[in-house]
Design a protein around this nucleic acid. Structure first.
Lengths: 217, 217
DNA sequence: GACGCTTTGATAATTTTATCACTAATCAAA
DNA sequence: TTTGATTAGTGATAAAATTATCAAAGCGTC
């Protein structure tokens, strides 16, 4: 089977969503000096069944050797190709509050395939100031940056009240994927993909399973 | 059916994971002054089918009225009870880097059921300094804070290299749920729940669906 | 009050996802 | 070389999740 899959087969999104986890773990194993691994070992590390991992990978080709397992470096490479992160994607960041600063300062993006190429804010007082080497620009400058880098990915790190408006602007300017840190669900056209990060969603998921133990009660 | 469900029925985790999204949207509707809504309207806002929303809610009881829909305030209340966020949960935060600062400064936790009651770091230079009104404490002080607040939830916002060690410490001290911002999969006992936030995982998911357009290529 | 429109909640049907079970390949050691 | 222990890949099966369907109920209008 060809690497980027036979066009007849539609790969489930849930499979795609696991690949980055596999990749992250494989790169850790690689960094630890492991030459080979197995679906069983990976499954143990990730809390998944070995069958699931083999099945997931089988959508894209054959990467292992029976009796031996997978060559870590090779599988890393293949996954990077499948996910198209064997290169660096330009990303723009909207919002230069505390969160925007944390994201812009994070140095874990580049070696995993992403670089923040522009930071934007609407606050006049922030425009022109810097985060590390990056100058915060006016919202008006977004289009130019997107064009220059052919940027398809944006991070929204503005307050919830401004997020939809920012999203509309980004989409009008050609952004195809948005990572939204604002705690709202955006309304976007079908060709735009949005992923959300809202820590409270995770907390509220957790508390369902906890026995109640609140402050002042 | 009783509110917190008939013990015979095991509610799928995937259903639980959607409830916080429903709650978030309902509270938005409430803030906008909406008195009632419908599974159809909610579904439209969230990109889900109305049947799914009705089915999800049906695990917990009957909250709507045929022909009318759901009373927004009432359904909010019920979801808050189901998720046990009709109160404030104490949370501790480990790691006072940029991300830790962003989290500690965020004022969107409290009204959704959570309060950061302690911030900890291993860096001697940070200990004793403040984020807003919160004093950064030594890692050694974690146990006392957990005990004092009967804290069950922790946020890990330390580098990947330290995360497992911190997790082990937290678990030994009684933490039951961890929100992990470090880009690794933690190894934890079965009774501990971990949720992960790693933006790169989302980016790499997105790029699978994008046409390649990297920097310098 | 009857009628038309809407909506829920329940059940059935369908689709999707995960698991199982097995074959063939690989390797190390006897 | 043979044997035993592993392991990938895969078609079949089981489980889970989503979607479709529909009766009953509510509301507004005539």
């Amino acid at each position: 089977m060809s690497l980027l899959t036979n066009a007849l087969e539609e790969i489930p999104d849930i499979v795609i969503s696991r690949l980055p986890i596999y990749l992250r773990t494989l790169r850790l194993l690689d960094a630890q000096g492991a030459e080979v691994t197995s679906s069983q070992e990976l499954g143990q590390l990730l809390g998944l069944s070995s069958a699931q991992i083999r099945k997931d990978l089988s959508h894209f080709g054959e990467f292992g050797k029976q009796g031996t397992g997978y060559n870590v470096a090779y599988l890393c490479n293949q996954l990077e190709k499948i996910l198209k992160v064997d290169c660096v994607w330009p990303v723009i960041l909207i919002g230069a509050g505390y969160l925007g600063h944390a994201l812009a300062s994070y140095n874990g993006f580049e070696h995993r395939g992403f670089r923040i190429v522009g930071v934007f804010d609407s606050d006049e007082n922030k425009i022109g100031t810097t985060i590390g080497a990056t100058v915060i620009q006016s919202i008006d400058a977004i289009a130019a940056t997107i064009q220059r880098y052919r940027c398809q990915i944006a991070i929204i790190a503005v307050p919830a009240t401004a997020a939809q408006q920012v999203a509309d602007l980004l989409i009008a300017t050609g952004i195809k994927s948005i990572l939204c840190y604002a705690p709202i669900t955006l309304t976007v056209p079908a060709h735009v993909r949005v992923e959300y990060i809202d820590p409270v969603i995770y907390f509220q998921h957790m508390t369902f399973y906890l026995t109640k133990g609140c402050i002042d009660e």
